[in-house]
Amino acid sequence: MWKKAYEWLDERLGLNAMYTNLLDRPEPRGNWWNTLGSASLFLFIIQGLTGIFLTVYYTPSPDHAYDSVQYIMNGVAFGWLIRGIHHWGASLMVIVVFIHLLRVFFTASFKYPRELTWLIGIGLLITTLGMGFTGYLLPWHQMAFWATTVGTQIAGTVPFVGEFILKALRGGPELSALTLQRFFAAHIWMLPAVLAGLIGVHLFLIIKHGESHYPSQDE
C-alpha cells in the first residue's frame, strides 16, 4: 500500500529524480571541508526555527524588549534553550560561513564556471553579518544599546552620505523605539527573505555545476 502511494507521488513529483539530484549527486572526493556549506544551511534553518519560536514571547518595544527576553530566559519552559541555541548559533553561523568562504578561496572553487556562486556567497556572508548586527540590538540591554550606537556611528562616518545612512539605520538622529522596531523588521523579515532567496540560487548553482574538484598539479 505504501509502495503504491509512493509510486503515485513519485510519478507526479519526481521524488526519485529529486533524491538522486539533491542527495545522491557525485562528489569529487570525500573531504570534511566540503561539508561547511551544508553546515551553514543547517545553521540557517536552526536559526530560523529558534527565531520563529522566540517571536512568540519577544516584544520589540523599549518598554518590553528587555523584560520579555528576561522572561524567555527565566520564566518560560525551555526558553533558555531556545534562546541559547539562537544566541550561540548566531556566532557559530558567522564563523562557519567565513570558514566556508576560506575553503572555497583556497581550493580555487570560485573560478569558471562558478563565479556567480561565489558572488552570491559574498552576498550571503554580508547578509549573515547584517543578521548578526540587527539581532544584537534586540535584547535591548546596555551592551546591545551601545554596540548599536557605535555601529551606526561608524556607518555615519561615510563621506557625504554618512548622516543620511545613520538616520536611515536609526530611523532618526538618535537610537529610539524606531531603531528597535526597524532592526526587528530587518532581522525577522527583510534579511531572512534575502538570505532564503540567495540560498535558493546558491544551491541551484551548486547542483547545476556539481562540486568542484581540487586543482591538480598541472592546473
Binding site: 526555527l49 519560536f53 512568540v56 519552559a77 525551555f78 526558553g79 534553550l81 531556545i82 541555541i85
Partner: peptide, 15 residues
C-alpha cells in the same frame, strides 16, 4: 531533543 522542548515552550502559559 529539540521538538519536545519546543512544544513545552509553546504551551507553557497554558500549563
Amino acid at each position: 531533543a529539540l521538538g519536545v522542548p519546543a512544544i513545552a515552550y509553546l504551551i507553557d502559559p497554558a500549563l
